[in-house]
Design a protein around this nucleic acid. Structure first.
Lengths: 332, 332
DNA sequence: GCCTGTTGTGCTCAAGGTGAGTATATCCGG
DNA sequence: CCGGATATACTCACCTTGAGCACAACAGGC
């Protein structure tokens, strides 16, 4: 096997932080004139990108160290928790380009958490609420309007357009499970599934872009959420889903919080990530019994009501219990 | 960013099948003269390898299709379930070579399941019980001897050799949690953790190989399990752990079984993979209630005792329920 | 100073899931 | 026709989970 110059390997990062009750991700605003973030030669438009960096084959011992390195270099951010997400290597990842003209791009994507909403260190890099990209994912105030008003009807029409009943049945099941329609439960983790479904039915900008001019999609349909370049929104969806899943069985939230925090603050952060409201008493019972936190004696009275005790994460649980997490509601 | 010839991208596969009560994986026996499986130029010895193939940048639309393609080509195996495992890209993956002399090898590893113990289609590729590589992982007949006789004492000595009490405490916790010593529970999923611990303390061949001649390990210590080339045993451990984890919340076992099967056979296969015995009645209650299987009217009387009804997997559950799996015992 | 809104905290209760054990049915091979 | 082996049916105690009610403690406005 010989080395092949027509393959390019890069690293992508889904970097998450939480401000107050807003989960945010770091994105590069699409203005391709400034190549301070990698140089995505295969990228075309003025759309947002995820932070991207090439892999220097000799530079770092591990891929994760490479990632930490260039993020630090370019943004000054010191990443906390980092985990590998997925490796994207499809051929048609660069829209608008014929794949024969560009090298094959392999992106190893990572999920990374940083503790606060730090300045991004670059003019083009900025924090954005992740629900800007996925408005249908936020159920904290009940079912989002978009679902009832746009998604559900469009999906229904799509189900109706099926060629035969088998396809129709399959489509019906997919939609009801993904979006919790018709009696199914809403599963916060299925972010990628939902995005891909919307892509398929043409409700996101990317699908029309990729399908070219002679598209079968109705021109009138609205486009949901802020778009991203290439397949970066898909990568983001993967990260979001993983983040939510991880929440359930690993104490990762604490990587996003300051050293000490109120229990309500903790709950709000979890809710922000999960996009769902939680039962307060049960939540407290959970973190208490799980031994996830311990009280410092101090109080925080800036909350308005009765002052809340400040808690701190008990790092010991990482080694004590088997799977300490903060259960999202439909734990299964 | 330009293309870089000093990076090589390849695909690795952990291919699993089950014969009777033995979980097996496909490995390439180490005889580097026959390059029918890729051409691992950076590989040295006569050790086993996982199936490996280069990535042809223009050939397939997705990485998964590439993988299926070359596995079919070289072995005739038609892979069933396939999922991406992890991407390995550390610099020192090729032992015995100075990393400056070889290109950086990025391996995208996949977990793949095939339905039976089919012939491997190649003289060098052969099925092996996976406990040959990880003897300490099989708890079906109680705690394996190796743990009591070799691993536990060696780990204990290693804990004692710690430089200060903080390190000592950390080591103690790691060992007790990984191997279920001192009151901790045995967690079948932590395969990788355990392998890495054994690597660190020098109980597997690979660690001595990588650390060179001037090793600190006691010459007398035995070496556990069959070794593999490069970091392939680490990849295998990753696959094994993922397989066990997946078992719990996805009905993947059925990809390994024939169309119809006895409930006891199903249980034995799960036990083989999990390396743990299960409570029969509860197991049956689980698959029954979960709607995972449905009885065909037929009976199988080859079992010796009362003839067992043959069951079949209900594919519908894939779309019905949220997370149908076969719970391993310490469900948490 | 008192009312009101807001948050923190303790307790209860029903429903369902889980681990484990007992008892009985059904067949095969000697 | 009996032992051995498997297949099923039930039971039961225990824990977890979801969902309430009740009340305590503070801030701020009137």
């Amino acid at each position: 096997m010989s080395t092949d110059p027509s393959i390019v390997v890069g690293l992508n990062a889904v970097i998450v932080a939480v401000t107050k009750e807003s989960p945010r991700i770091l994105t590069i605003s699409g203005d391709s004139s400034d190549p301070s973030f990698g140089d995505p030669l295969w990228s075309g438009g003025d759309l947002d990108l995820l932070p991207y960096g090439p892999l220097d084959p000799g530079a770092n011992r591990t891929l994760e160290l490479s990632l930490r390195g260039w993020v630090r270099e370019r943004t000054g951010l010191e990443l906390g928790y980092v985990e590998q997400l997925y490796t994207f290597g499809d051929r048609e990842r660069a829209p608008g380009r014929r794949w024969r003209d560009v090298p094959r791009v392999i992106s190893v994507a990572y999920l990374a958490l940083v503790r606060e909403d730090q300045p991004s260190g670059s003019a083009r890099a900025r924090w954005r609420d992740w629900y800007t990209y996925f408005p249908w994912e936020d159920w904290r105030d009940g079912e989002p309007q978009v679902i009832r008003e746009t998604i559900a009807p469009t999906l229904e029409r799509w189900v109706g357009r099926a060629s035969d009943t088998a396809v129709e049945e399959e489509r019906r099941e997919r939609t009801s499970i993904s979006f919790g329609l018709e009696g199914s439960e809403w599963d916060p983790d299925r972010v990628l599934e939902r995005y891909e479904l919307l892509y398929e039915v043409g409700l996101v900008t990317e699908s029309r872009r990729d399908s070219g001019v002679n598209s079968a999609y109705a021109e009138g349909d609205p486009l949901l959420g802020r778009a991203m370049d290439m397949d970066h929104r898909r990568i983001l969806a993967t990260g979001l889903g993983r983040m939510r899943g991880k929440l359930r069985y690993r104490p990762v939230v604490f990587e996003l919080l300051p050293e000490t925090f109120t229990l309500l603050r903790l709950q709000r952060v979890v809710e922000a990530l999960a996009g769902v409201r939680l039962h307060k008493q049960n939540f407290r019972r959970l973190v208490g019994r799980g031994g996830l936190v311990e009280g410092t004696g101090e109080l925080d009275s800036r909350t308005g009501g009765r002052p809340a005790e400040l808690f701190r994460f008990r790092r010991e649980v990482l080694r004590e219990r088997r799977a300490p997490g903060l259960g999202l509601p439909p734990g299964r």
